[in-house]
Nucleic acid binder design. Structure first.
Lengths: 160, 160
DNA sequence: TAAGATTGAGGCGTCAATCTTG
DNA sequence: CAAGATTGACGCCTCAATCTTA
C-alpha cells in the first residue's frame, strides 16, 4: 500500500478527479447506510446478512461452502463465520460438514430462512429501484456497469 | 421505506439492472475496505476519521461546528461524536464551545493532528489514484460524476 | 506446510435516551 | 418544544491466534 507515501511531490487530484472521488465516497457511505437501515427495520439484519440468504437461495440444494459464499458476498472468511453463526441462532441457516472435504463447512438455508427471504425480497427490490435503478437512464446503467467492472477487474486490493 | 413491500408482483431486476446493482454493491463493499485498511495500517484510523481531519484542515481556523462537520463527512451526529472523542484522545483534535451559540461545539485540528494529516495525505492520494482514478478514462470520470450526482441529489434517504 | 474455518478481543456505527441551550 | 450534541449498550467487522484436515 501507499507506494508513493514518501515521494516528495505527490500528484494531487484536480477538481474533476476530486469531484468524481468524493461522489464515489459519499455514495459508498450513504447507500449501504440506507439499504442496511431498511433491512434492519424489517428483519433486524444487515445487507451482508441478506446477501448470504439470497445467495444460498439460488444455489443448488440451498447450500454453499463457506469459502465460496465468502467470495460471492465480498465478505472475509471471519466476517462470514460471524454472520452465519448469527443467522444460525435465528434458525435461518444451518451448518453441515462437507462430505467430500472434511475441512469444509456447508451453509444451508432452512425453510424458515427461505420464508424470511421471500418476505423481505419485494421490499428490498423496491428500495433498490427507488434509490438507484429508477433514478438512472439506460445509458447511466450501462456506464455504471462499465465503471464498476473496470474498478473491480484485476484489482487484488478490490477483490478476494 | 419499502412502499411496495406488500405488492403482489414486485418488478424484479432484469439482467442489466442486476449487473449494475451488483457492481455498485461490490464496489461499496470493497472500496471502503481497501481504503480503511491502508489508513489503518499507516495510522490506526478509518477513512471516516481521516475525512474529519481533512475537512478541518481546509476550514478557516482549522475549526468547524460538529453539525457542519457531520454533514460534509456524510456522518451521523452520534458517529461524529464518537469519532471526535477518539481523535481527541489521540491529541489530534480538540473541542471548544461555540461562542455565538452555546449549544454548539467546535472541533479544532491541533498541530499534531495537522502533522498526522500531512504525513498520511500523500499515501492516501496515491491509493485513491491506484484504486480508482488511474483505472478510469476522462470519459469514465465524467460519467461517474454524473451518476453519483444523480443518486445523491434530492434523495432524502441518501443525504442528510 | 497450506487450506478451510472459527474464535475472542477490540474498534466503529446505530439506536434510543438524555442533557443543555435557544 | 426544537436544535445541537453526547452517552452507553449492543451489533458487526477486523485482526491475530488457533484448530482441524489435506
Amino acid at each position: 500500500m501507499s507506494a508513493d507515501a514518501t515521494a516528495d511531490s505527490p500528484r494531487w487530484l484536480d477538481d474533476d478527479e476530486l469531484a468524481a472521488w468524493l461522489g464515489l465516497v459519499h455514495l459508498t457511505l450513504a447507500l449501504p447506510t440506507a439499504i442496511d437501515k431498511a433491512l434492519r427495520d424489517e428483519a433486524g439484519i444487515s445487507h451482508t446478512y441478506y446477501m448470504v440468504l439470497a445467495m444460498l437461495s439460488e444455489s443448488p440444494g440451498r447450500a454453499m461452502r463457506m469459502s465460496d459464499l465468502s467470495e460471492v458476498t465480498s465478505t472475509s472468511p471471519s466476517r462470514l463465520s460471524h454472520a452465519v453463526a448469527s443467522l444460525e441462532r435465528r434458525g435461518w441457516v444451518e451448518r453441515r460438514q462437507d462430505s467430500t472435504d472434511r475441512r469444509g463447512q456447508l451453509a444451508v438455508l432452512t425453510d424458515d430462512g427461505m420464508r424470511t427471504l421471500e418476505r423481505l425480497a419485494p421490499g428490498h427490490v423496491a428500495d433498490v429501484r427507488r434509490l438507484v435503478i429508477d433514478r438512472l437512464t439506460e445509458r447511466d446503467l450501462r456506464d455504471l456497469r462499465r465503471i464498476a467492472a473496470k474498478l473491480l477487474a484485476d484489482a487484488p486490493a478490490l477483490r478476494g
